[in-house]
Structure formats: structure tokens, C-alpha cells
Design a protein around this nucleic acid. Structure first.
Length: 492
RNA sequence: GGCCCUGUGGUCAAGUGGUUAAGACACCGCUCUUUCAAGGCGGUAACAGGGGUUCGACUCCCCUCAGGGUCACCA
């Protein structure tokens, strides 16, 4: 075995990848890349009841979308595969068998029902619900009798009842557990599948994992796993338990807290760069305090020592701020490509439009993207470039259309634009300003109603950017249509 | 309930015995401006509580409280 760092992210495919899992994966990747090590993805699908193929696919999809690329694992292969625990059953059986032979583990024939009943009784008696080692010293006859009853045994590890198990955690320091609080836990289920605490250890050893970096919820499992390491004669890896990510109400993240899965954020129009940047800052901070950072920079600066111990409450507002930052800073073509699916989904354009008018869409995005926080929002914000204005924002109508001269100004403005040979930012602006100068009104008195007329809104990009992109024909007709609308509504 | 972890502004988060206790998001002003953003400038706001140790504690120790995790043939 070499000193080379090998870490893994080991999700169980029982749901989508949520931001907590993504953050754990990210920290593993950051640590691996920082130290020139290997990042492994291992699917822990030993729960045959709850694991699904769809979930595996979704996790993989989310990780790829985020740019969390693994070196070994599904789709990649590697020298330590297979990377699905369900395909490694022989290994677990072999190791469990060894423990049995060495007298470090034993068969237990207690049924789940019996166990549950006893657990309940112990709880009622105010005692800690632990397995008391009933089957620890079964005779050969006992076993035969149980087998004859058709009972399927599980395999339990013999846990020492004396002494302590110490976890040396890179983030939390030394954590001591009394062995007396542990019981003889199950390592192999009656259906032949290993339990988490067993499979995880066997695999981490078999795959040469040097650092186990995972969420804090596993800290309490660690002494059990250390006992397995010892029983199996394995060398211990280093442990690092990263703080949890909590919902705004300080509780564990769940569906009722709105978006928590990576795909939900994606569908809401968040960029992977923003999510990664945000997650990087949750539980870790760079030495220089500079918060806007690419994954490359995070890799350069990431150390486990700077990971903090306290659970973090995730704050969508900050994620959103980062998202708007990347929306305006990232490559224009990239953002354009990202926003198109949202436009298509909303029926603003068709896929064909997108292909034919790509350059135009790109120009629209260029003048508009500064103002949106998400791709979804951006798609809405630029819709008027592609669809006619159906209605005018109410507060804008009150403000800009209810003035005496609004319709007249619009008409005159339209006329001025129509006469233009050259239709540029400069020429249209000049036309507007000379018109208002001649009329003795402020340019704003024409600008505001015009924006409302051609976009339906009071907010948006610079007016002349809009006018030029919209083109003479559409601009003029929308202005006239608005003037008409104003006249009709005055009568009422 | 037992065990374990944690406790700096609303949120993220620097800080490792002596600091005017950084910074970011959010919020509030001002500024820029054709609107809205962005930008610039400024502002409100924190060491959970109580005991120790020390010349001196946000920093070390203990207790309390609070939050979280875990005690499954889930991971």
C-alpha cells in the first residue's frame, strides 16, 4: 500500500443526491485533488428494499452535472472494483466467515420480532435498548434446533464489554466511547447481505481508502466500525467527520424545506458553479477570506484542518447571490446555452428557434443577464424579445401611461424612430433626445412609457439596447399599439 | 432516555490568552443612472448563561441551558 491519498464518496441509492451529500462528495474531491490523490465513487446498495436503479442514475447525473468527477467508480471502472456493494457480496461473506472461524463473530437466531419485543421491554424498564448477547454462546444443539425451526441466522460481532474505543478525528480531535454502551451488532443480515457498518469497513480496506471523510451523523457509528477493523486485523484509515447541513429551522434537511436535491436546484435555474461555490463555503473557509472561488482555487487551498465543527444552516439567499454573480460573469455562450432549455420549456421559443436564432438570443442574453438571479428568471425576463406584449404592468400604467401626453409622446417617438435610416443605439437615443428637447420635456418622460410599451414592464435593460435588438418594426408597432391602448382606456 | 458532537450578528464565517471581535449574504441609507440590477460609499447587528484558572479570557477547565447526531436485519 502506498501513501497516496484515496478517498471515497459512498452514497446509498435510496433517493436523490441532496446538497448535504453533494457537499460531502465535494469535500472528498477537494481533498483528493489537493493532495494528488484518488476520488472514488462507491454505491452502497446493500439495502435491497430501498435501493433503486433510478436513484443510482440520479446520483450519477447530479454529480456529473455539478462537475464532481470521480476517478474510480461506476462508468469509470478502476482496479478496486466492482464499485457497487451488491456486486461484492462474496468478499463480505468471506470476511464474515473468517470472523466466525476466529470466534470473533457468531450466528444469532433471534427473529426481528423477538428483538423488537425485547427492545421495547428494555425501553419501558428505562434501560438502554441493547442486544444482550443471547446467542453469543449457542451450543451445536441449539443451533441445530433453530435451523430445524427454519430460522435464518444473522451474524453478530462479539463486542468487548470492557474498555474504550477511541476515534481520532481530524476535524473533531479525540473522541472516546465506552465499549459498554455498544452491543453485539449485526454484520451480516439473514438475507446474506452485509450491514452498513460491516460492508463499509471491508470495502474501505479492500479499496485502500486512506481517509474516511463523511458527514457527522456517522461519528457515532465509527467506534463500531473501528471494532470491525480490529477484529478483521485491518489498519485504521484516518477519519474526518464534516458538520451537517441543516434546514433554516435548524432541523435535518427534508422535503418540507423546499428544494434540497441537486436536481431541484438545477431545475430552478441555479448554475453548478454557484452551487459548488456555495457548498465550498459551507463548513469551510479559505485562508484569505475571498469567497468567490472556482473549484480550481478551492482545490488549491482546501485542507481538512480548516473545516469547522459546527453544523451549518443553508441559506438560499447567499446561493442566489452567487448564482447571479456567475450568471453575469461566466462565458456568454455558456450562459446562453444554459438558458435556452428554460426558454423552450416555458414556450417562449422552440428548439428550432433556438438553433436558427442563436446569435440573436445571445445578444439578448448579453444585455439582460445582469439583472436576473437564476436562469429561470432570465428566461422570463427576456421573453418579450420573442413574444408580443400581452399586458402592461399595472403600476407602470399608473406611473407612465396615465400622463396627459403619454400617447402623444409614444406616437411622436414612434414616428421619429421610423424615419431613421440607421438604427443603432446612438441614432435611436439621439432621435429620442432631440424629440424631447424640441418638445421641452425630459427624456425620461418618453423613455419610461416606451419601455412599458415595448416590454410590458417598468424594469429591464437600457432602453436603447432593447430598441435596437427588438428592431425598428416591432418597436414602432408596439409603441403605436400602446398609444392606442392608452386612448381606449382613457375613455373607460 | 443513554452516549456523542456543537454553541461568535438573522445566515455563512475569521479568530487558537492581550483585537476598535474581520469579511460575505441579507437588511437599511447614500451615490451612480432612462428604469431595474450591478458597482461605489456608509450603517444596524454577535462571543448562550453561570462559575472557575489567569495580571488578563471569545479563546483553557467545570456546570447549566440550547441545538444537532446516534442508539435498526437503513445507510
Amino acid at each position: 500500500m502506498t501513501d497516496k491519498v484515496r478517498v471515497r464518496f459512498a452514497p446509498s441509492p435510496t433517493g436523490s443526491l441532496h446538497i448535504g451529500g453533494a457537499r460531502t462528495a465535494l469535500f472528498n474531491l477537494l481533498f483528493a485533488r489537493h493532495s494528488g490523490g484518488t476520488f472514488i465513487l462507491r454505491i452502497e446498495d446493500t439495502d435491497t428494499e430501498r435501493s433503486t436503479e433510478e436513484s443510482v442514475a440520479q446520483i450519477i447525473r447530479s454529480m456529473k452535472w455539478l462537475g464532481l468527477d470521480w476517478d474510480e467508480g461506476p462508468d469509470k471502472g478502476g482496479d478496486y472494483g466492482p464499485y457497487f456493494q451488491s456486486q461484492r457480496l462474496e468478499l463480505y461473506r468471506k470476511e464474515a466467515e473468517r470472523l466466525l472461524k476466529e470466534g470473533k463473530a457468531y450466528y444469532c437466531y433471534c427473529t426481528p420480532e423477538e428483538l423488537a419485543a425485547r427492545r421495547e421491554a428494555m425501553m419501558k424498564a428505562g434501560k438502554a435498548p441493547r442486544y444482550e448477547g443471547l446467542c453469543r454462546n449457542l451450543t451445536e444443539e441449539d443451533r441445530k434446533r433453530y435451523e430445524a425451526e427454519g430460522r435464518k441466522p444473522v451474524i453478530r460481532l462479539k463486542v468487548p464489554q470492557e474498555g474504550q474505543t477511541v476515534v481520532e478525528d481530524i476535524i473533531r480531535g479525540t473522541v472516546v466511547f465506552e465499549n459498554s454502551v455498544l452491543d453485539d451488532f449485526i454484520i451480516m443480515k439473514s438475507n446474506g447481505m452485509p450491514t452498513y457498518n460491516f460492508a463499509c469497513v471491508v470495502d474501505d480496506h479492500a479499496m485502500g481508502i486512506t481517509h474516511v471523510i463523511r458527514a457527522e451523523e456517522h461519528l457515532s457509528n465509527t467506534p463500531k466500525q473501528i471494532l470491525v477493523y480490529k477484529a478483521l486485523g485491518y489498519e485504521l484509515p484516518k477519519f474526518a467527520h464534516v458538520p451537517m447541513i441543516l434546514a433554516p429551522d435548524r432541523s435535518k434537511l427534508s422535503k418540507r424545506h423546499g428544494a434540497t436535491s441537486v436536481e431541484e436546484f438545477r431545475d430552478q435555474g441555479y448554475l453548478p458553479q454557484a452551487i459548488i461555490n456555495y457548498l465550498t463555503l459551507l463548513g469551510w473557509s479559505p485562508p484569505d477570506g475571498e469567497e468567490i472561488m472556482s473549484m480550481e482555487k478551492a482545490i488549491k487551498e482546501f485542507t481538512l484542518e480548516r473545516v469547522n465543527k459546527t453544523a451549518a444552516i443553508y441559506d438560499v439567499k447567499k446561493l442566489t447571490w452567487l448564482n447571479s454573480h456567475y450568471l453575469r460573469e461566466l462565458d456568454l455562450d455558456y450562459i446562453t446555452e444554459q438558458v435556452i432549455p428554460f426558454m423552450v420549456k416555458k414556450g417562449i421559443i422552440t428548439q428550432e428557434d433556438a438553433e436558427q436564432n442563436y446569435e440573436y438570443i445571445k445578444r439578448v442574453v448579453a444585455v439582460s443577464r445582469d439583472r436576473s438571479k437564476t436562469l429561470d428568471e432570465l428566461a422570463d425576463a427576456i421573453a418579450f424579445f420573442f413574444k408580443d406584449v400581452e399586458e402592461y404592468e399595472e403600476k407602470g400604467v399608473k406611473k407612465h401611461f396615465c400622463k396627459e401626453n403619454a400617447a402623444e409622446l409614444l406616437l411622436k417617438g414612434a414616428e421619429a424612430l421610423e424615419k431613421l435610416e440607421e438604427f443603432t443605439h446612438e441614432s435611436t437615443e439621439h432621435a429620442f433626445r432631440s424629440l424631447t428637447d424640441a418638445m421641452g420635456v425630459k427624456a425620461a418622460e418618453l423613455i419610461h412609457p416606451t419601455r412599458l410599451a415595448i416590454t410590458g414592464r417598468t424594469v429591464g435593460p437600457g432602453l436603447f439596447d432593447i430598441i435596437v435588438l427588438l428592431g425598428k418594426e416591432k418597436t414602432v408597432s408596439r409603441m403605436r399599439k400602446a398609444a392606442e391602448w392608452i386612448k381606449n382606456n382613457e375613455k373607460i
